[in-house]
Amino acid sequence: MLPPTEKDRVAPLWSLVDDGAGFDETLDALISAGLRELPGFVLVSEEDDETRVVIRGAAQVHLAAGDDVVHVVGDDTTTWVERSVPGVTRVRIEVADDVPEPGAEGALDGLLDGGLVRLAAAEHPPTADEADEVVVPPPADHDGLTRAPQTVPVDVPAPPGIPGQEPAPPVTARPVARLVLPDGETVDVDRSVLVGRAPEASRIVTDGAPRLVAVASPHQEVSSTHLEVRPGSGADHGLAVATDLGSTNGSVVVQPGLPPEELRPGVTVQLVPGALVDLGDGVTIEVVDA
C-alpha cells in the first residue's frame, strides 16, 4: 500500500510481486529511490507460518494469532516499524482515522477486476457470506493509500476479534482486575476495555464487544481511542494487560516498586495491582484487584 501521491510506483512493484519477488526484494525495490521521497507505506508478507509487516507513516496493522492480537502502529518519527508474527489467521490494515463499517454509507462492496483503488482499511481474508474469490473492498471517497487489488479466497472461517464483525466474544468468568477512573468510577476488566475521549470499537482488533470508557480531556491530550486494557492470555493469564493504541501523546505506566515506563504503541504490557496508567491531561487510571 502506498500514498495517493505514489501511484506511479504501484505498477512496477505489482509486476515484481507477480514475477515471484519475495518480501526483501520487494522492500528493496520500494525504498530504492530513498526514504525521503516516500512518506509512508505498508508492506505485508505471508510466508510459511510467519507474517511480516513493515510500516512507515500513519497506519496500523492488526494481526490475530490464536487468542492474541498484535497491534503494529506506524510512526512518523522513525525509519519504519517492523514485526514478524507466527501463526497469524487474520490481518486488518487501517490507513485512515475514520473507517466506515461494512455496509455503511461510504463503504464499497463488490468485485474488482483490476486497477488502482483508494481504501481506508483492508482485511485478509475478507469477510464474505459465501466461499468465493473477491477483492478486499475499499471504502469510497477516502483519503487512504493506493494499491493494486488482490484476489484472495474467502472460504476460511474468520476468527473472532476483527472490527466490523460482531462475533459472540469470549469473556472471563470473573474480572481479572478493576480500573479506578479519575472520577472514582470503577470498571471491571473481564473483556477488552477501550479508554479515550470518544472510544470506538472499530479502531481496534480485539476480542468481542469491548467496554467503551470515555474520559474528560479538557486540552484534548487524550486520544479518541487511546488505550486498551484486557484480560491477558498465555503467560499473562489471570492478569490485566495494557496496550497504547498509537495515541498522540502516549501512555505511561508506573508499577509498584518500578520506575515509570512509557508504553510503546501496539506493545502489550502486564499490569499488576497498584499500577497507575497516566494518559495525560490529568487522566490517571489505577489498577486494583477485582
Rank of each mutant, 00 (worst) to 15 (best):
R174N: 08
E286I: 07
R178Y: 11
D97Q: 11
V134A: 15
Q255R: 12
H71T: 07
D8A: 15
G257C: 04
S84G: 10
P265G: 10
D244K: 12
E94G: 14
A65R: 05
P125W: 00
T248I: 10
G196V: 08
L38I: 01
A290Q: 04
R92F: 08
E262D: 15
P137L: 07
V88Q: 02
G114Q: 13
V10D: 12
D188K: 09
D49K: 07
P265S: 12
G87F: 09
E46Q: 14
R211W: 04
E130H: 13
A209I: 15
S217Y: 05
R230K: 02
R56T: 08
A104D: 13
G257E: 04
V254M: 09
P86I: 07
R9Q: 11
T77F: 03
W80K: 02
T89V: 10
D188V: 06
R178E: 13
R118T: 09
D49Y: 10
V176Y: 01
T243K: 07
L181K: 01
P139W: 06
P160Y: 02
D68A: 06
E6M: 11
P218G: 00
T268G: 08
A96V: 12
L276Y: 09
K7R: 15
R191T: 12
A177L: 03
G282T: 02
S223D: 11
L108K: 14
R191C: 04
D113Q: 09
P137Y: 03
W14E: 15
V252W: 00
V267G: 11
I285K: 03
F41W: 09
T243H: 05
G74H: 01
L112C: 12
V88C: 03
H226M: 09
L239W: 03
R264W: 13
R118V: 02
D18G: 12
E6D: 13
V42P: 08
A235G: 06
G40H: 02
V154Y: 10
G144Y: 02
V269W: 12
D113M: 06
A104I: 08
H124N: 13
D132E: 15
D190W: 01
P273E: 01
P153Y: 06
T225Y: 00
V171F: 05
D68V: 01
P139Y: 09
V81Q: 06
R230H: 04
P149A: 01
V61H: 03
P210V: 00
A209N: 15
L2W: 11
E50K: 10
D141R: 14
P170S: 01
R118M: 04
P170E: 01
A21S: 13
D68Y: 00
P157T: 11
E47H: 15
G57D: 00
V154L: 07
L245E: 05
D67N: 08
E261P: 14
V54N: 04
P170D: 01
H62L: 10
D190V: 03
D67M: 05
L2I: 05
G208A: 03
G282C: 06
V176F: 01
V85S: 02
